[in-house]
Design a protein around this nucleic acid. Structure first.
Lengths: 242, 242
DNA sequence: AAGTGGTCTAGACCACTAC
DNA sequence: TAGTGGTCTAGACCACTTA
């Protein structure tokens, strides 16, 4: 771990957990923190900027750096993100414990024009089409439809779809998923979605469309996930810099 | 404007507009770009990292930096963000031109326990409660309910609510809105929401809850905005660094 | 004037990839 | 081995706030 990430983690812990730093309290000055952590100014600023982007602290030029006085809801969202090891800058929260995945479809099909466009491949190139139902505490919560180019997933098995395709990619293929573009919208649930998620047809559903990339720039996944509207909400922090 | 932002803007323009840089194409190396823009390595890296965070390019250590081969939808989302001057890292897109704001309620009320908690003030402290309907091309799209502590908005007039409260804050009060915490969920529209947005009751609506802060750390706004589900979608890019 | 954070530099050294 | 990006430094200089 690099120094700025380490320092950011230390200070975040003092805000979220040990409460050593209280809301509205000033952090030590940059000069002091540089000495404390024995790092240069640039490194320290990088560390603090991580916390600024997370929405935990704010800086005032000529004055100092302060812990934001967050209300419960935003604070819990940030806390949840670090508990879940979900360090992405975007988080979905749900209450619950036991997660179960049921594979509803696991097929290889020729890409439609639309899917080919979304995956950046040729129509009729083969793709995996995997439909899965995610349940939390035995309540079905998310219906996932995933499309991946066949040739990018050599050796994929049904068993991988039943546990985690991302584990397969990272552990077996030794590749990394480094970025993904998400679009979130609400729709009326179709008969099919309603059936799987125990909703009435036309009840709201949150549809999250994702385009995901590997560290080598390869687009490897297009997926649409339908989330129960009464279980999921999505959080983000917007920071405007000087 | 600082140098890294300027360089990021230049390169972004070459990707999005002039097409001087095509998908999958390698950017010049850091050393070359340092010479071209006459800046140090740290400054140049900061510039490129802006584009990485936006999802426009990716870096491979030991190899180079490349333009991402984005499909239409994510690409348009990024393009839209810069057309709208909405440089926030999170954007809502809608199709349409003429925006009109109708003020439905403009009152001062004592904060309920819930609103006091959301605004970090005492219950029964006075707050503005402003309800507005935003229409695009004469179609009502968003119903906004805004709460702001009375004492933070000296001199606010109905006319400000009819145009832009943010302009009032930035221009008249000379304050800056620098961060905001958002939560997005889907709900069934109530009779009231449905009425304003020309939906049927129970049809989906996207509810965006916002807590907004000034540059001095002051929490000044709690709002809930109900968006027509068939008009709005929200985009974000998630990047995992090494 | 003193003290805060903001930007930038020139260069050292490291980690990784490709050949 | 050569070339790429990643991290870090020590210090210069700037912009802003407060007194």
């Amino acid at each position: 771990m690099n120094k700025s990430t380490y320092i950011a983690n230390q200070i975040r812990d003092k805000i979220l957990n040990t409460k050593e730093l209280a809301p509205n309290q000033a952090l030590k000055t940059e000069v002091e923190l540089c000495k404390e952590y024995n790092v240069s100014k640039m490194t320290l600023k990088k560390a603090i900027d991580i916390l600024v982007d997370e929405g935990l602290v704010y800086k005032q030029r000529g004055v100092g750096t302060f812990v934001k006085n967050l209300t419960e809801s935003p604070l819990n969202n940030i806390r949840d993100r670090y508990k879940d090891q979900n360090l992405t800058g975007f988080s979905a929260s749900h209450k619950g414990q036991t997660v179960h995945t049921k594979v509803l479809e696991y097929t290889v099909i020729p890409a439609s024009d639309f899917i080919a466009e979304q995956l950046g491949i040729q129509p009729s190139d083969f793709v995996y089409f995997i439909k899965r139902l995610r349940s939390v505490d035995d309540f079905p919560n998310v219906l996932e439809e995933t499309y991946m180019p066949l040739e990018l997933m050599p050796g994929l098995k049904l068993a991988n779809a039943e546990t985690s395709i991302y584990s397969f990619i990272e552990n077996t293929l030794q590749l990394k998923v480094t970025s993904s573009h998400l679009s979130i919208r609400a729709i009326k649930s179709t008969e099919e979605i309603a059936g799987y998620l125990n909703l009435k047809p036309e009840e709201p559903v949150i549809a999250v469309t994702q385009t995901a990339f590997l560290s080598n720039g390869q687009l490897f996944e297009y997926s649409v996930c339908y989330h129960r509207y009464d279980v999921y909400e999505f959080h983000t922090v917007v920071v405007r810099k000087d």
